[in-house]
Structures are given as C-alpha cells and as structure tokens.
Design a protein around this nucleic acid. Sequence first.
DNA 1: CGTACGGATCGACGCCTGTCAATACGTGTG
DNA 2: CACACGTATTGACAGGCGTCGATCCGTACG
Lengths: 113, 113
Amino acid sequence: MTQPRSTIELTVEPCCPPLSLSLALSDDQAVDLAKVFAALADPVRLRLLSLVASQDEVCSCDLQAPLGKSQPTISHHTKALAEAGLIVGHKRGKWMWWRVAPDRLDALRDVLR
Amino acid sequence: MTQPRSTIELTVEPCCPPLSLSLALSDDQAVDLAKVFAALADPVRLRLLSLVASQDEVCSCDLQAPLGKSQPTISHHTKALAEAGLIVGHKRGKWMWWRVAPDRLDALRDVLR
DNA sequence: CGTACGGATCGACGCCTGTCAATACGTGTG
DNA sequence: CACACGTATTGACAGGCGTCGATCCGTACG
C-alpha cells in the first residue's frame, strides 16, 4: 500500500520549552513536561513512533495494518504525538506523511539529567 | 520537619527490561515502556521526582508540604514511581526515605535513541 | 461535476487514574 | 503495654483516555 510521492509541504504544530529534571521543577513546567510524557505513555503510540523512526517517513495508510488499529484510532494517536511535538506531518495529495522531530527527542533526553 | 537518620535498609521493587525506540518495538516491549512513561506523565510525580533528585535523599514527610497534596496522595505517587523503578525507598524507623534510581533514568535516556 | 478514497472529527462506551476522607498497619516512646 | 505518629491501604467519586462506528472534509481522477 506504499504510495507515490509528489510535493506540497504542510507542517503540523510544534510545542513546549526546554527543561531539566534535577533542577527543582516549577508547577507550570511540570504540567508541560507531563503532557509530553503522556504522549509516550501508550503502547500503540510508542510502536507508532518506533515505526516512524525506523523508516524516516511513513504514510498514515501504512500504520494501520502493523498497529492493528482502526483508522480513527491511528489518526487520534498521530494527532497526540504531533501535539506533543514528537512527530511532524506533511500532507502530500491525499496522503499524510509523518516523520520524527529529532530535536524534540534530544530535548527530552536532556530533561532526564 | 526534617528528621534524624538511623540505619536499617529496606529496598523497594525494581522493574523492566532495556529497550530502544528506533528499532521496531515489540508489543510487549511497548507495553512495558509505556508504563514507565506513564509514571512520568503526571505533574505531581514529576515535581516529586525533581525534589528527590535535587537533594539525594528525601523523607516522605518532607514531600507533602511542597507538593500541596494529602498524605495518601503522596504515598500513591511514590508507589507509582517506585513500581516504575524510578525511585527507591528505604524505611528507617517511622520514616520513609526516597532516592532516585539513576541507572533507570540513564536507561530511559538511551531508549530515546 | 461526480465518484472514490484517505484522513479528520464526533459521539458513545468502558476502563483507568488522581484525589481525598477514613481506616488499618508498624514503629518508637513513655 | 498503650499511645502517638508516619505511612500504606481502601473506598468512593470525578475526570480523562483509548477505542470504534458513523460521518464529514478534501483531494485526485474519470
């Protein structure tokens, strides 16, 4: 089901500030950080993210089968990861292509001291 | 309210295997990893963890005030973090002392590629 | 145009989780 | 031994979340 590629770029939303765990966390900071971790706190999203990370661009249509979830569910999860800034989506024609936001993962690594 | 220190060590449970995000994640692996991230997906637990990380040992009794939560709630959160292997508790007399499990945080950093 | 198809949104359902009051458990102190 | 005090557990409640079927929106292609 892998699809042909044309052009047209359509970025999805970015998000959130840099932090560090071992320096006393403010309330607001904690709330923001918790949202990012919440995005990672689901097995389906973790496998989705790992699929996107293993190739470097993946069509939504190619996620449904390996994850064994319905199309609305996949859409729900990609949205959650995108809102956390962990993946970025580009729409090309009818298809939605996703790739990881590597700097975002880097930042998250730094948070864990 | 900071308390005196005697001895007696009483370790709390460890947990879970090593993983990597960019290598296709199995279902079971994803489930395990999700549990760890779920432990971090709460603002109160993040601030609790940052409090424990900033000093290197903290008494439960000293967490209640800065976090502004009831004693059962604090106990609930320390338990969640301990079950995720992120903190380790030692009971000395009446008081429960917590410290971070540094290798666990290291492992988690590695997971994020 | 109209039709087909990929994706997003909506509504509903069941489950999980954060919170607290009440209570039980254990340890030290008189 | 009895009592005080820190911690853990239980029960209850409200809110959030994962899931899916149904539906809507947009884009390609006859």
